[in-house]
Computed example of a mutant assay.
Amino acid sequence: MWWYHLVGLIWTSEFILACQQMIVAGTVVACFFSRNKSKLSSHPLLSSISILFCYHLGTVVKGSLLITIVRIPRIILLSLYNVLKEKENACARCMFKCCFCCFWCLERGLRYLNQNAYTATAINGTNFCTSAKDAVLILSKNPAETTAINCFSDFIVSLGKVFVVCFTVFGGLMAFNYHHELHVWVVPLLLLTFLAYLVAHSFLSVFQTIVDVLFLCFAIDIETNDGSAEKPYFMDQELMNFVYQSSKLEKEIRQRNKKTLHNTEYGIELQPMVRNKVQAV
């Protein structure tokens, strides 16, 4: 019976997270695909929430159900791994680790697919399967830009988390330093660090979601419009320049790494020894 409660708890948490992603996606889409940015709604979040509960609850339920279906085998494998951890069966432990990693990668991929499907749903109003298919087709046409934006967002999010945690630890050390009556301050400092990481992760995950939604909106805008007077772009010129410069930098880094690898491999090969003939005088 407790398995039903566990599945319900996981599905509920994933449903709440999916609703948050859908609300953010709807807000960004409404602001992006607007010709007159000065006449936007004064409450875009409330409008996105009302659209979600009126039209797109089925999409959110399907997306959260997929994540729940993938997470349940991970939990089962983790419990079995903890049972086999005390035994000396190295082969079984290795197999469980491989399966656990595969399910983890599958879950990360599904989360990324769900986010793009929610964005396509907010743009076109289609169902979950159609939106996921359209998002995959659009992203597959822009592989360089997708890689560049993902690397940029991951780097900014990781840097932000490190900065917030380090700043919190430094502030905690300075605060505890002025209270000499505290003899055991390691535990409060660790608790403060953990809470700082949770807060940073919560806020920066919203930033990462916005970056992903903006890029998919950019890709759809490029696909459907050509910048002419009949079909002008919805995006700003600054956004277009930033995306193209990021993709160009990513291509240059890849070409440079390929050249470096080729030169290294060529340099370690054994070259034939050439001896000059010295004529005796």
Rank of each mutant, 00 (worst) to 15 (best):
W11V: 03
A120I: 10
F194K: 14
I268W: 03
A200Q: 01
E252Y: 10
C31H: 10
K277E: 13
Q279P: 09
F176R: 04
Y244T: 07
A148Q: 02
N276Y: 08
S140T: 15
F170G: 05
H180G: 08
H179W: 07
E145Q: 11
E223I: 00
N116E: 08
V243W: 01
M1W: 06
S247R: 04
H43A: 10
G125L: 01
E145K: 12
I210K: 04
C105M: 07
V211A: 12
V169F: 08
S64D: 02
L239F: 08
C101V: 04
K258Y: 06
L204W: 01
P272E: 09
I268H: 01
N82G: 10
K248E: 11
I149T: 06
C94Q: 12
G160W: 02
M273D: 12
I69F: 06
V70G: 02
T224F: 13
E252C: 09
S158N: 12
V186D: 09
L57F: 03
K39I: 10
H201Q: 15
M235G: 07
C217H: 02
S79L: 15
I51K: 11
H262Q: 14
A219P: 00
M235I: 08
I16A: 06
A196W: 01
G26M: 03
L78T: 15
Q21F: 10
L65H: 03
R74T: 14
L113G: 11
K87Q: 11
F33N: 05
L6I: 06
G125M: 02
L195Y: 07
Q115C: 07
C91F: 09
V136T: 14
S48W: 01
L6D: 02
F33D: 01
S64G: 03
A200L: 00
Y118V: 00
A200H: 00
I10F: 07
S246E: 03
T260D: 08
Y178H: 13
K39M: 06
C99Y: 05
T209C: 13
